[in-house]
Design a protein around this nucleic acid. Sequence first.
DNA 1: CAAATTTGTTAGAATGATCTAACTTATTAC
DNA 2: GTAATAAGTTAGATCATTCTAACAAATTTG
Lengths: 219, 219
Amino acid sequence: MASSTEENYLKALYNLSNGQGEVNISDLANGLKVSMPTANSMVKSLQKSDWVIYEKYKPVILTPKGQKEAALIVRKHRLTEMFLVKKMGFGWEEVHEVAEQIEHIHAPKFFERMDEMLGHPTIDPHGSPIPDNQGRMQEFSYTPLSSCKPNQTVQLTALTNSSTEFLEFLNSRKLSLGVHLKVISREAYDQSIVVSYPDHPMETLSEKVSERLLVRVLE
Amino acid sequence: MASSTEENYLKALYNLSNGQGEVNISDLANGLKVSMPTANSMVKSLQKSDWVIYEKYKPVILTPKGQKEAALIVRKHRLTEMFLVKKMGFGWEEVHEVAEQIEHIHAPKFFERMDEMLGHPTIDPHGSPIPDNQGRMQEFSYTPLSSCKPNQTVQLTALTNSSTEFLEFLNSRKLSLGVHLKVISREAYDQSIVVSYPDHPMETLSEKVSERLLVRVLE
DNA sequence: CAAATTTGTTAGAATGATCTAACTTATTAC
DNA sequence: GTAATAAGTTAGATCATTCTAACAAATTTG
Ligand SMILES: [Mn+2]
Ligand SMILES: [Mn+2]
Ligand SMILES: [Mn+2]
Ligand SMILES: [Mn+2]
């Protein structure tokens, strides 16, 4: 069984795996805020349990076994976040740190009950998909608000960044998932975008913000 | 801040501290299922953080600081057990192992919300008192059923043992906290006791069982 | 009380997770 | 296509937690 530390490495590898499914040691070290030798030695030990494929000087690749293990931890993380928001009155900006700990609890029934009480949710409070209990995660293809055009109406559906600071910024503008936004205009100079939504007839969002907002185009 | 391992030692010391508040190394080692040298070396390191007072060949004593730290972990453990039973549909025999893990989560709001949602409970699902958020625990003085006399009517209020096996035994006899029991008779030979309660007009309980059942005498 | 038993300690080792310093391989820039 | 830079590895150390083997102190027993 994976230790909490190993679980955090598997999750980081899972989240950092892009199209190729490959992760550089330096990205892994960076993501987990450990030194490269630490990441290097842990990768070697993950290989002994067949969670990754690894050759000197090559990027790390999760095996199917490693992917499933990681997806099930992500599942526990996201179910926990949803539970904290929907059942325990947490704000979406308060849940990540707690979920980072609770994801390591070994108690299948605990997470099964969360799942049932939540009605088998498919997304977490930040719009990220929740893998199913077999570790399969559906991929959504949302559009960043930054690439939307004036006059489009869109619905805010997910975020590419869920840092506390960003979530608190969104709170301050009353932006939450599900909100319908109308794109009013874009400023060519700095790529800022002006949107309108209930109670906010004219809100200017910087490119930094709008590229982190994922939307579904309604019309 | 105490590691999970240190927290488990503090909790064990707290639970093993009897009237004198002293704990032998061998009892500690036994309780935690570690070797005596392991317990010995951990006690030395707990001393460095002022959680215990310790001198060679003397029993260990928790300092007030150590007592408070331990009581707050016990609080998290028992609040968790209550939450699992009252809010998540767990049986009282299923909660201890999960609580043993969740008690180490560092997230004050998580436990504050449990406490609020439960209406600030004072006992856990097994009748043990929940320390308050300052680490103060009230002592109840209940009577073991084994020392009750025929014709007494009592209410089952707590247990001195909460092992899964014992709890499953109680489930099989439909014995739960709050049940009113009438003592019918006692067998002098083996100290077994016959009680009657709703739907169970005649139930014989061994001494081993009756000394683990704590009751409040009603009349 | 002396012997036997129980309890507690020390020494030495192992494992997991981490670091810094020094070195090597791979990639990028001119 | 070298030279400079970035990325990756090795070596060696530390800290936490645990163990077994060997020894020492305290307690119990005849
Ligand atoms: Mn999260
Ligand atoms: Mn984590
Ligand atoms: Mn318990
Ligand atoms: Mn525990």
